[in-house]
Simulated assay, not measured.
Amino acid sequence: MSATTKRIVVFGGNGFLGSRICRAAVARNWDVTSVSRSGNPRWDTITSSATPPPWSHHVAWERADIFRPAQWTSLVHGADYVVHTLGILLEADYKGVISGRESPLSGLSRAFNPAKGAHSPNPLERVRNEGAPEPGVEPPSSPAQLTYEMMNRDSAILLAKEAAREGVKAFGFVSAAAGAPVLPSRYITTKREAEAVVAREFPDMRGLFFRPPFMYDQSRTATMALAAFATAGSAVNGLTRGVLGGFLGAAVAKPLKADVVADAVVEALADETVKGPVEVRRLEELANRAWRKTML
């Protein structure tokens, strides 16, 4: 590897968006590492084929639990960029629902329970004030414990803390454009809390908070129909000067193809002038800029 080669570590790199960020980074000849609990992707769940694409052989697919830093801190050492793409849409234990261990109503009631988010939005503050163990050292023992606070917020802050300690130049956090009526409010508030804490606690590390809308790809046929609905809603929202956006949120934001968001993430990381929240329009601009570079 050349001394000038950039090194990126993508947490959740075997997922729908994370794998595409890895692909975009490989296209730039960066040194790419993916970190996830399962390691290698199940390609049939994130692409249209079960066969690994050629670029995937240029990625180090590592296995580690985000809530056990000792498993992955060595992977972050020497990285230029670290990206957090982990998160959950609903807290319901899907396996429990399917197997009959939990009813769909109880799963949803847990997700919409506001009491879960009552503690401090900053796990680092809890450590300082209460002398508690560092957040995330004890991983959840079951899917029922995977809360918005843990996955959408605390895991990102934990990763940012270690990245800053290792002198990482830029930290990318995949947040969201907005919430939606079908999601608990804690889905978006925990992401915004993560953004605020990372920006405040680690000012010497360039923080980029990507706020994509609904993402789609032809390899996931269900996303195409939802994208068509969101596109229509976005058009109507534009004609009504944003009236629908006030209560439908991301449901009427213009959807973007997952590859577009991935290209934008990598382009933003490479541009030292980009920092802070990166909204939908800016994502499109960055992706277009990245595409033009490939045409030169």
Rank of each mutant, 00 (worst) to 15 (best):
P203E: 03
A170V: 07
E193P: 03
P41E: 02
L226C: 04
A232G: 14
V261L: 09
G117T: 12
L208Q: 02
L90F: 12
A268V: 06
K275E: 13
K116H: 14
S56C: 09
R153V: 00
R192L: 13
L239G: 13
E62W: 04
A60T: 11
L183C: 11
P52A: 14
T73W: 02
Q71T: 07
D80S: 05
N14F: 05
A270K: 09
T221D: 13
T33Q: 06
Y187L: 11
R126Y: 08
L239K: 13
G39T: 07
R206C: 05
N152Q: 04
T51I: 12
M215K: 04
M151K: 06
L239T: 13
L256C: 01
V278H: 01
Y148Q: 00
N40R: 13
V236R: 11
G246Y: 11
G172Q: 00
E267T: 10
K6E: 01
V265C: 01
S2L: 08
D263P: 10
A132K: 12
K275H: 14
L248M: 15
A222Q: 13
T147D: 06
P140Y: 09
A176H: 06
A230T: 07
R110A: 12
G87A: 00
E285K: 08
L105V: 15
S103R: 10
T240D: 11
S109Q: 15
S175Q: 04
A170E: 03
T223F: 05
Q145P: 07
T294W: 12
N14W: 02
L146Q: 10
R28F: 09
Y148M: 11
P255S: 09
G242K: 11
R200F: 11
P143M: 08
D154L: 00
G39V: 05
G39K: 00
G276A: 11
Y148F: 15
S175R: 00
T273R: 15
A194V: 03
V243W: 15
L296K: 15
K95D: 15
W43I: 07
S109C: 10
T273F: 12
H84C: 03
I21R: 01
S36Q: 03
M224R: 12
V274W: 01
A258N: 05
R220M: 11
M295C: 13
T73M: 06
G179M: 00
V278F: 03
N14Q: 07
A178L: 05
E62T: 12
N113Q: 06
R165E: 02
L86R: 07
L244A: 12
E91T: 10
V260E: 11
T85L: 00
P54Y: 09
R37W: 07
P140F: 09
S106G: 00
M224P: 10
A111H: 04
S38Q: 13
R28P: 07
D31I: 01
P213T: 03
G245S: 09
V243K: 14
E279Q: 09
S38M: 02
L146S: 08
A222V: 12
P54R: 08
F214T: 06
P69K: 01
F247Q: 07
A290G: 10
V274A: 05
R165V: 05
L124K: 02
V252F: 02
T221S: 14
R20P: 04
T189M: 05
V137D: 14
E201S: 08
D259N: 14
I157D: 03
M215E: 04
E125P: 05
S56V: 03
L283S: 05
T85P: 02
M150K: 14
